[in-house]
Design a protein around this nucleic acid. Structure first.
Length: 560
RNA sequence: CGGGGCGUAGCGCAGCCUGGUAGCGCGCACGGUUCGGGACCGUGAAGUCGGAGGUUCAAAUCCUCUCGCCCCGACCA
């Protein structure tokens, strides 16, 4: 690829709309352009990155027996109505055809896979199967953000396993986990595999592949001692308990104190000696959820404990149900269901008195009020690991892949069954597995970039080598560069030739911004001494070598 | 969906408060001088000031509505 004949629109300045590092750099390096909120055009260089990633995906999926197929983007409503997912998913794009038939745009393909399996799989002899595709997904996200990290239209490698039973599913699932590890390793990413919430997907278990990055939307808890790793939406930790004072239960005035911080300051206490009382309205009635004053309630944890729909109470409901405004409510004497975080068991705390401007001191959950103890608080760094007791670390991460054990939910809904060895009809056991190639690209940028621009892992770089001709009007330089360019491609080294009639500084800056692993410079050293400069983008190590040694130096530095 | 911010030339921004018909830097085109880390001089092209309505002799500027984009939160199959 020659720069002068390519669409590589690099930007000198940071685009105003970009906040995340990867977003800024993808725009500046001319990889993508945004058409609308969460909808992107992939330009030639960005497309090459996706192609590299997709090639790795295909290799590793094929290696575990995956068969590539392509399913449609447009789906009839019927299959989603059968699975029960037609209603209640706000992210689903819905439309009608000219006859008024309901259709939707595919946000995932369990329904189509189950439909296909229902028609084509008949016997246990047909199982197991692994089907995958690399295809566009459409999700009307409430808030697209961070460049290509959360978009409304995106490419996804999604695969689906069909197995006769749970033991076989476990094998398919394990094969995927191993394939995913290889994929992310080959893409040059740092990542963790963590336990995750199965969410509304329903299912028997799931894991997420998480790449550490400040731009991530998720947080995970990690134990350096035993390897425990989980998304904070379900990660459990044991907080260090505070020293409880010996106090007798009594009501104390806390005029004007509305927040935990104000109450604690007013009483001269550590916030860890207070309890935060949060009122929710569930379908079956009001629920008071309690966490320690310095903790945050995780609503996904509350959702798992309640198993019904709920929402935060409005201020007037709080007053009507508990007789006090938000800052003064508490569990003692409250005639509502009380859920208390397990960290509160056995301690002695300050809680709201359900009387405006007053709190109760010396309250022990379980003794002074009845409560169901469940895990509700969001793990914080430093809490003890539930498995080994070592302190947990909390890291911000980008979700680059996930794997689900689905079970028979979709196969039963769509009638995907097989006949077992005894001629009995059985539902097919399914698994589903996803990877977002754009997120791999963004995570690679986030993890590798330096102050000058992108630093691509060699495996997914648009090109391995970037040839800079210092002076394109010097015939000798141009001829040498052309020769090197041809030789690179002949030898399987994909190269970009910057043949623009620009000053060297411009070309060096762009080379750094674009981030190819190796830069080859043809300039004065060649004119004077016949030497070519070969330089590593990542380490900045540079070698001056005679022409015949260039390719070897390129390969050498690309690995370094 | 709740909260906040921003829409002026391809990009980054000023002008708006205090109305008088648009400007700077980069980029782009042409000419010249330069040429190893985003050169310099000169000339030039390019803008329905997001859109609609209103106030006014006059609106980028004031008012109303509306569309779009970004950020925080909720949500995220």
């Amino acid at each position: 690829m020659r720069f002068t004949r390519s669409l590589i629109p690099t930007l000198r300045e940071e685009p105003a709309e970009a906040e995340a590092l990867s977003h800024t750099l993808m725009l500046r390096a001319g990889l993508v352009r945004q058409l609308a909120a969460g909808i992107f055009v992939w330009l030639p260089l960005g497309q090459r990155v996706l192609d590299k990633i997709n090639a790795i995906l295909r290799q590793e999926m094929n290696a575990i027996g995956g068969q590539e197929i392509t399913m449609p983007v447009v789906h009839p409503a019927e299959i989603w109505q059968k699975s029960g997912r037609w209603d209640g998913i706000p992210e689903m794009f819905k439309l009608q055809d000219r006859h008024g038939r309901d259709l939707c745009l595919g946000m995932t393909h369990e329904e189509v896979v189950a439909w296909l399996a229902a028609r084509e799989i008949r016997s246990y002899r047909d199982l197991p199967q692994i089907w995958y595709q690399i295809q566009t997904k459409e999700r009307d996200e409430a808030r697209p953000r961070s460049g290509v990290l959360r978009t409304r239209e995106f490419l996804m490698k999604d695969s689906y396993t069909l197995d006769p039973d749970l033991a076989s599913l476990d094998r398919s699932y394990a094969a995927h986990e191993q394939a995913y590890r290889r994929i992310f390793q080959r893409c040059g990413l740092r990542f963790h595999v963590v336990q995750s919430d199965v969410g509304m997907m329903g299912g028997l278990g799931s894991h997420e592949f998480m790449a550490p990055s400040a731009a991530g939307e998720d947080e995970i808890a990690l134990c350096g001692g035993c390897g425990y790793a989980a998304n904070v939406e379900l990660a459990r930790g044991v907080p260090v308990p505070p020293d409880f004072p010996r106090w007798t239960r009594e009501e104390v005035p806390t005029p004007g104190a509305r927040t935990i911080a104000e109450v604690a300051a007013h009483l001269g206490l550590d916030t860890r000696l207070t309890i935060k009382s949060l009122l929710y309205i569930a379908r079956s009635g009001p629920v008071l959820a309690l966490v320690r004053g310095d903790h945050h309630l995780h609503e996904r944890k509350l959702a798992r404990a309640l198993r019904e729909e709920f929402r935060p109470a409005h201020p007037d409901e709080m007053a009507a149900i508990l007789g006090a405004p938000a800052g003064s409510v508490g569990p003692v004497g409250a005639r509502v269901t009380v859920l208390a975080d397990e960290a509160l068991r056995g301690g002695s705390y300050v809680v709201g008195a359900n009387r405006e401007g007053f709190h109760l001191r010396g309250v022990t959950p379980g003794r002074d009020f009845e409560a169901r103890f469940v895990d509700l608080h969001t793990v914080q760094a430093g809490e003890a690991c539930v498995q080994c007791g070592k302190p947990l670390a909390v890291e911000r991460v980008i979700e680059i892949g996930n794997i689900f054990k689905l079970g028979t939910k979709y196969s039963e809904a769509l009638g995907a069954t097989y006949l077992d060895e005894r001629g009995q009809q059985q539902p097919i056991v399914m698994g589903s597995y996803g990877i977002g190639p754009a997120r791999i690209a963004a995570a690679a940028i986030e993890q590798g970039a330096d102050a000058d621009g992108i630093v691509w892992p060699a495996a997914i770089a648009p090109f391995l080598a970037h040839i800079v001709v210092v002076n394109t009007r010097d015939a000798a330089q141009m001829e040498a560069a052309e020769g090197l360019y041809a030789e690179c491609w002949q030898q399987g080294v994909e190269a970009l030739l910057d043949d623009r009639d620009e000053r060297p500084g411009v070309k060096f800056k762009d080379a750094d911004l674009l981030g190819m692993p190796v830069r080859i410079t043809v300039g004065n050293a060649f004119v004077r001494e016949g030497l070519i400069e070969v330089r590593s983008r990542r380490t900045r190590a540079e070698r001056r070598v005679p022409r015949p040694a260039v390719l070897a130096a390129v390969r050498d530095l690309a690995i370094a």
